[in-house]
Amino acid sequence: MNFKRFGRTAAIAFVAVIALSSCAANEGDTASTGDNAASGLTGTLNAGGASSQGAAQEAWVAGFQTANPDVTINYDPSGSGAGREAFIAGGSAFAGSDSYLDEDELAGVFAACAPDTKAVDLPVYISPIAVIFNVEGVDELNLDADTLAKIFAGTITQWDDAAIVALNPDATLPSALITAVHRSDDSGTTENFTDYLAKAAPEAWGEEASDTFPFGGEAAPQTSGVVSAVTNGVNTIGYADASAAGSLNTAALKVGDEFVAYTPEAAAEVVAGSPLVEGREADDLALDLNRLTTNPEEYPLVLVSYAIVCNEYADAEQGALVKAYVEYMASEAGQAVAAESAGIAPLSAELSENVASVLATVK
């Protein structure tokens, strides 16, 4: 991964974090709760955002509150867009978001942050986005980016369309209308889904990446709403964080010359080969995901979900709570419980180290 913006200062900060972690480890068992066990922290932390993080946040909250019984953490899985809006307005201490802050958001004022300071994007969650489907008589489905784009743009409307048949010669595809389900709310999952289609099938898609779905069709709120609509509908297809796919069938995507089913490992491989977004501050870890990979070991329809935090808080006590909680989320222990509960791909050692380096400077 390309971390050229990091230099000596960040490296020193990370060494300091490791030293503190080692001391904490010597003081007690932190295997299930990260580096914050017996910290003496108190207070309430209100946050919200990405519904994709829902299962992971439940595990993170349980682990952190067990280690810090005088802390209460409330996470509202309201969607990435709503989470960023609430954080920017000062209504929450941090945001969970499947898309990083855009240039307009960065140019504004963050009410929870100290005057003349900004917020940064810290990766805490890596997951594939599953293309979920419920089609009578079909258990397996292969799709390339061009065909997937046309389905969701509404230019392919029948399941037995020639393009789908050509990709699935052994399937018995019904002569039935396709019901394509998308998110009705501003969604980081939608931003990642449309980013993949915009880059991998630009002519078929014809739109830029967006938190807001650009076409018509059936819409449902949040991840759970899309999963419910696909599950309970007829001849349906949708997209959702893979942790929420449950027992639904999922499509394999064409990568290079092969069709690739999602796995956490294949999602992590794409992230490992993706550079940081250019032109941002050195402590901002927004990633420019490689959607055009032809390596069948990689699954390009992936999301990286961020904890968006102030680099300095107006309320120092809130800053200390956010710092400790996000440190746990990104720690080896925090990633392990999220992997178990939500099936995420844990952060690479390199990415985890760089998140720790930035958090060491948060106050």
Score class of each variant (00 low, 15 high):
253 L>C: 01
194 T>L: 10
171 A>W: 02
159 W>K: 07
63 G>W: 03
172 T>Y: 03
144 D>S: 13
30 T>M: 12
170 D>L: 12
28 G>A: 09
361 T>Q: 11
343 G>N: 09
260 V>M: 08
128 P>H: 09
316 A>E: 15
121 D>I: 02
150 K>E: 04
253 L>S: 01
124 V>E: 04
164 I>E: 08
284 D>I: 05
320 A>L: 14
281 E>R: 15
302 V>H: 05
266 A>Q: 08
305 S>I: 01
68 N>R: 03
175 S>D: 12
219 A>Y: 02
309 V>R: 00
185 D>L: 04
293 T>N: 02
303 L>G: 02
126 I>K: 07
197 L>W: 01
303 L>V: 09
73 I>N: 02
53 Q>V: 02
85 E>Y: 04
86 A>N: 07
34 G>V: 00
29 D>F: 13
26 N>M: 14
192 N>G: 13
160 D>C: 12
265 E>G: 08
235 N>E: 14
66 T>Y: 15
305 S>M: 04
273 G>C: 03
281 E>A: 15
184 S>I: 05
127 S>Y: 09
10 A>T: 05
247 S>E: 14
153 A>C: 10
325 Y>V: 02
43 G>I: 07
222 Q>F: 14
56 A>Q: 09
335 Q>M: 08
261 A>C: 01
64 F>Q: 06
24 A>T: 14
140 E>N: 13
357 S>V: 07
291 R>D: 02
120 V>Y: 04
40 G>D: 09
256 G>H: 09
134 N>D: 11
278 E>I: 01
271 V>T: 07
326 V>L: 13
150 K>H: 05
361 T>S: 10
130 A>H: 10
308 I>F: 02
5 R>E: 08
15 V>K: 02
178 I>F: 01
134 N>Y: 11
315 D>L: 08
271 V>H: 00
281 E>L: 14
276 L>Q: 05
291 R>M: 09
136 E>A: 15
209 A>G: 14
276 L>K: 08
111 A>I: 10
71 V>M: 06
135 V>F: 11
21 S>H: 11
347 L>Y: 00
318 Q>Y: 11
361 T>P: 04
6 F>T: 04
147 T>D: 07
266 A>L: 11
23 C>N: 14
45 L>R: 06
332 E>M: 10
264 P>Q: 10
72 T>K: 13
245 A>W: 01
295 N>G: 12
13 A>P: 04
225 G>V: 03
55 A>G: 03
26 N>P: 09
349 A>D: 15
11 A>P: 00
320 A>D: 14
189 T>A: 08
241 D>M: 10
284 D>R: 06
253 L>E: 03
307 A>E: 04
307 A>M: 07
225 G>E: 04
51 S>D: 12
118 K>M: 02
195 D>C: 06
149 A>T: 07
78 S>W: 03
227 V>C: 08
123 P>M: 10
311 N>T: 13
168 N>L: 02
